[in-house]
Structures are given as C-alpha cells and as structure tokens.
C-alpha cells in the first residue's frame, strides 16, 4: 500500500508500490498525450517559437477543455484570441509538471523539493480533472457518489475501476497538499 506524503527533515516524502507507480505513470502519459500540441507542419516557425498558435481552436474534448478552459465566461471570440497567445505555453507548462512527476516515479521512495511537490500537485490535479470528466462528475453529488467506491474487490466494470483510481489519486493529492501546507507554515 502507498504511504501518505508527509513533510519532514528530508522535505516531502511518500512511498508507492510498483503497481501504483505503474498506474500513475500510465495516467500521466495519457494526460500528456491529450495535451501534446498537434504537429502542424505548415505552421509559421517563428510564431511557433514564441508560442503563438493562430490555428488553435476551442478543444472539442470535454476533458481537454477542462484542462485548457476559456479565459472569458461569455466571450468566445476574446477567449479564442487569448488561446492563440497563451495555449501553447499553458500546454507546455502542464506537460512539464506531468513529466517531472513521471520521472520521480522511477524510485519506490519519493522525495520532493518544494518545486517538485508543486509539479506533483499540478500533475495529480490534471489527472483527476481528466478522470472526473470520464466519470462525468458534474456536481458535488456526483463527486460524493464516486467517493463511495472504495473497495477494489467491487471493481467489476470500467466505471467502478475508474472511480477507484480517481479516489486513489484524490487521496494521494490530499496527503501531498497537506504536507505542502505544513511546509508553507514552517517557512513563514
């Protein structure tokens, strides 16, 4: 069984079983592949270099859209314009955090610096956002319903399996964030 993250002399530490690490790695890889910008060979190389993407569109996949939301609530045109300027670098920021977390999965014991912990919390959050879209968690009631699923022997279909994975990621992120809040306290 995984051990909750805790804050101590070495920084923030945690422990995951090999199967749990494999699971997290595949979840992280999935999210990375969703965020990987399309390779547009016709793109202006200078625009690409400075992060502009004039061909960008609002994501059609709900999970991707949750990862890369519109910046204005009721203004699709202004949101799209903002995407052209920022979406590529936002994708890269997220992929960077996800890759950093995946690298830490090479060892049983996870020892995180403040920066590493931030990357982990962002990565776990994005993993949870994607799983939540797949589980169709729309409101607090749906979240409660999914939360009830705690017993791995009950995993009989894809949805119950996804719910268990979601709950594992939630537990892991909560323990990590508690450790991060503790480390903020001691730095004050």
């Amino acid at each position: 069984m995984a051990k909750a993250f805790k804050y101590g002399l070495k920084g923030i530490t945690g422990y995951l079983e090999p199967t749990e690490r494999e699971l997290l790695r595949s979840l992280i890889d999935d999210v990375i592949s969703m965020l990987q910008p399309e390779d547009r060979s016709g793109q202006d190389p200078l625009a690409a270099l400075i992060g502009l993407d004039m061909d960008v569109a609002e994501p059609s996949d709900r999970a991707v859209k949750r990862l890369l939301p519109n910046v204005m609530k009721n203004d699709g045109a202004a949101s799209l314009e903002f995407r052209q300027l920022t979406e590529r670098s936002l994708r890269e920021t997220k992929i960077g955090a996800l890759r950093a977390a995946a690298l830490d999965l090479d060892k049983d014991e996870i020892v995180l610096s403040a920066e590493g912990a931030k990357h982990w919390s962002m990565a776990l959050n994005d993993v949870r956002l994607v799983l939540a879209e797949r589980l169709d968690i729309q409101d607090e009631e749906d979240a409660e319903h999914v939360h009830l699923m705690q017993d791995w022997s009950q995993a009989e279909d894809v949805e119950s399996y996804l719910a268990l994975v979601y709950n594992f990621a939630t537990w892991l992120q909560e323990s990590l964030v508690q450790a991060m809040l503790q480390s903020l306290d001691t730095r004050r």
Binding site: R66, L67, L68, P69, N70, V71, M72, K73, L90, T93, K94, A97, S121, M122, N125, D126, L129
Partner: peptide
C-alpha cells in the same frame, strides 16, 4: 489554469 483551477477574467 496551470494549477488546474477554473479561472476567468
């Protein structure tokens, strides 16, 4: 958005 929070301006 980098942190995964739902933000608008």
């Amino acid at each position: 958005h980098g942190f995964g929070l739902w933000a608008t301006v």
